[in-house]
Nucleic acid binder design. Structure first.
Length: 213
DNA sequence: CAGTCGATTCACT
DNA sequence: GTGAATCGACTGA
């Protein structure tokens, strides 16, 4: 017996908790992205926690800047950043206002609007790859810096809404080192994913760029 | 103000 | 498995 996902938006209080509590609790939740062409929905299968001021891997480790400003604001809002000269990644701000914690959305299963995402994800060889990776997820959902600061607790119909969805049984949650994080940041097992889910991205250690000539 | 590099992805061998 | 793509933000002088 399959229960339909709960379409109630998550509340501010959901995000106003320690980031390591929120991160695994986000698995199985459904993010709705409203676009002019129609809604796109993704069921989250992989996330990573970034623990603000205490975390060398976090963008907020060295304090507040123009880029990471949203992380210092109220929970439940979206922090979007641009990286590698061509990609965007999106986070959900957690914890009390002023404490810059966030959860990176790393991968998910497109459950609605797949035909819309395929136009942007040309290189995807199958639907499992549509949102298999943090920049693939934002590409599929057409998310960029213009959505930085968007409230994900807003009612469905706005640009972004995070629905209650179907929470994952704790037995099905796995954790391990974060992907692509340099130095001391990689020691923490703060990456969380759903066991055996085919849309979870492969682990990769941090790789320094090759020297330019 | 110039140098460095990234919470990545893709094409190619 | 390896290397290129590509540019804005951050760092340190």
């Amino acid at each position: 017996m399959i229960t339909a996902p709960d379409r109630t938006p998550l509340t501010r209080d959901f995000f106003d908790r320690p980031v390591l509590d929120v991160a695994p609790d986000l698995l199985g939740r459904v993010l709705v992205r409203s676009t002019p062409d129609g809604p796109i929905e993704v069921r989250l299968t992989e996330v990573e926690a970034y623990d603000g001021p205490n975390d060398p891997g976090s963008h907020a480790y060295r304090g507040r800047t123009l880029r990471n400003d949203v992380m210092f604001g109220p929970p439940g809002h979206v922090y979007v950043y641009f990286t590698y000269g061509m990609w965007h990644c999106m986070n959900l701000v957690c914890g009390p206002e002023g404490k810059p914690c966030a959860v990176l959305l790393r991968a998910g299963e497109i459950t609605e609007g797949a035909e819309l995402t395929r136009k942007r994800r040309i290189s995807a060889r199958n639907d499992k790859e549509l949102a298999k990776g943090p920049a693939r997820l934002t590409t599929a959902l057409d998310v960029d810096r213009t959505l930085d600061g968007t409230d994900a607790c807003a009612p469905e119909g706005g640009p972004l809404t995070l629905l209650t969805g179907t929470p994952v049984d704790p037995d099905q949650v796995r954790s391990g080192p974060r992907t692509g994080v340099a130095g001391d940041g990689s020691v923490h097992p703060w990456r969380f994913w759903i066991a055996n889910d085919p849309t979870v991205s492969p682990y990769r250690a941090h790789a320094p760029r090759s020297p330019r000539t």
